[in-house]
Design a protein around this nucleic acid. Structure first.
Lengths: 344, 344
DNA sequence: TCTGGCACTCGCGTGTTCAGAGTGCCAGGA
DNA sequence: TCCTGGCACTCTGAACACGCGAGTGCCAGA
């Protein structure tokens, strides 16, 4: 890879950068003449043409038809993102607006809802936010409520503010004192622990109860473990689908598979799941495993309350997107959501 | 209105019905010749042409340009829905499939999620389902959990399976016994009652506690009332936006305002809110108050566990939709969701 | 009141032309 | 060795003309 890049001198890279910038702005293939006019490259169109030919040779750009301008390829965008672009930081007023908008949230649902709308609005693209995942959070409290003699409701509250509830049908009636005892013992052991660790800590619990109560205790615990383990319950929230209409001119063809992908929570979860744990991840065009999104790019990043990321968020847009700006918005929003979560 | 209709004899109505049916099928303006070929109207094209001229005069159909076929107007669809079409019942296998698909749901979220996807798939349009509203439900149980000395979590469980939780910051510490007492008293009065009635029933409660405890009790109750009253918290779920791509050929223009409308929960809630309490509601084109949806039709109906409707669901599609089929699907799904909710 | 016939209109698809943008290549100059 | 201006070539897209076919409205006759 270094070898390939070495073949491109500074000016060729500048030309590529200029092509990406112009194309992102105009949505039209960019020619050599227009390039030297808009950017002061200090050379003539003919020279630029030679550079373009080299860039095309290497697969960084390509022309739709002979005698049309050039368009960056996925590989070209990749080089641009990796070596030619810098994340564009948000301006102070923008940061203030983000902060202010997110501060108004009243609960976790609201935080996520506001975040996703904000991100969609800032980037003018489709935004995706994953709810803080259960597996990374810790138990704040576990509550048991008797709804009927043999029916117990289990409520699991995490440090991220997430609440899960489950109905438990017990084999036989469960007394109020037993329930209180069980509740106390569970919380004593589980509170503050990470969710995946909890089952291990509660293993010996049934043995501490009287023989007659053990089936009920086991049933409750089984349901709790199920709730703890349920990775599938991962939820995400979407916003900005209307921005898809700005995608391109060849409409239905491009937009339909994208809309379909967006409806598949599984696809989106996997997409976000592939985000690197640290730092921002940018996937471009065919780098994305899911076929329906092959003409899009995804910018995603983890966010969390504190150091550790508990979930991911990101933006989906056309490969021809403003990468520096989008990355700046994604990073800023992720940071502020993290702060909000840490505070609450 | 009866006067207008009287001017149209049986055959003209049959022609209108045929036009609607053909246009819905082909998406192309339908001419007199094609009409007599596909439907055995028993008359010649020339006669049909005269009828069409009359129908156009009355505003039920219209031609995009001279020498093109006719297209139904909103008024034409209205007449079709009101007097010419019958709800097409689902077939037995379809009903079985609906039943089976919905039966797999594990909690309320899942019921709603499955319902909305099912509806989108059946109608191949955009489906909207409102969560069972708080205002029509009754209290199943109210739970209070001490998370910290002065921090209480309030959990409200309704008969529709919906769970709302709120954090309460009390002025001063709240003892476990006080909490248990309060919990018992609240539930004794509120359980089984309709949500809007609950505040009235709990009004005198603070007076029953000792002077020192009253601030805490009042704070908890205030939060509870807030949760009960929170109509804004009405949630809805969407599916099938990808089906919008089948809307028409004049793409971005049509689809963008619709996508925008679909992102506005407020708009959708108002849309569903306007559904009549009993029976199905069909709104066509410009009959819809919201401008962005003026080129769509909405078929909606209430559903509920038992006799009373607790929420609404519906389908949004092009005015050129298969009304009988859509209405059949909407009705069937609403019925089965109601059954599922009643069972759980 | 319905029908067949006829002249008319108009949109759409096809074919052609033309201008403009952009390229590749080459020879000359720093 | 690298850059530059010039030139011939290619190709797209817009504009225009044209003919076909679908569909209409109207009228006279059954």
């Amino acid at each position: 890879m270094a070898g390939e890049v070495r073949q491109l001198d500074e000016r060729k890279l500048a030309v590529l950068r200029a092509i990406v910038q112009d194309y992102v702005g105009t949505e039209e293939p960019v020619g050599s003449k227009a390039l030297v006019e808009r950017h002061n490259l200090g050379v003539s169109p003919a020279t630029v043409r030679n550079d373009m030919a080299a860039l095309e040779e290497e697969g960084y750009i390509h022309q739709p038809h002979t005698s049309a301008g050039r368009i960056p390829t996925d590989k070209g965008y990749r080089l641009f993102v990796d070596r030619l672009a810098e994340v564009k930081p948000m301006s102070a007023p923008e940061r203030r607006a983000i902060r202010h908008f997110l501060d108004g949230a009243v609960d976790l649902d609201d935080v996520v809802a506001r975040t996703v709308r904000l991100l969609a609005q800032l980037t003018r693209q489709v935004a995706v936010v994953q709810y803080p995942s259960l597996s990374r959070s810790t138990v704040r409290h576990i509550e048991l409520v008797a709804l009927a003699p043999a029916k117990v409701m289990l409520v699991l509250i995490t440090n991220t503010g997430r609440v899960e509830q489950r109905m438990v049908d017990c084999p036989g009636a469960v007394g109020e004192t037993l329930l209180a005892d069980l509740r106390a013992r569970i919380n004593a052991r589980a509170a503050g622990q990470r969710l995946p660790d909890v089952p291990g800590l509660l293993e010996e619990l049934p043995g501490l109860f009287e023989q007659a109560d053990r089936p009920a205790v086991s049933t409750v615990l089984a349901t709790l473990f199920e709730a703890l383990a349920e990775q599938n319950e991962e939820r995400i929230m979407l916003a900005g689908t209307a921005n898809l209409t700005r995608f391109g001119h060849d409409f239905p063809l491009t937009i339909q598979p994208v809309l379909e992908a967006l409806e598949e929570q599984v696809v989106l979860l996997r997409l976000l799941g592939e985000t690197a744990d640290a730092g921002m991840t940018v996937r471009i065009g065919r780098e994305i495993a899911y076929e329906g999104l092959n003409s899009t790019s995804v910018v995603s990043v983890g966010y969390g309350s504190g150091d550790e990321s508990v979930a991911k968020l990101g933006v989906i847009g056309p490969t021809r997107m403003d990468y520096p700006g989008t990355m700046g918005a994604v990073r800023a929003v992720a940071r502020y959501v993290g702060q909000i979560l840490a505070e609450s």
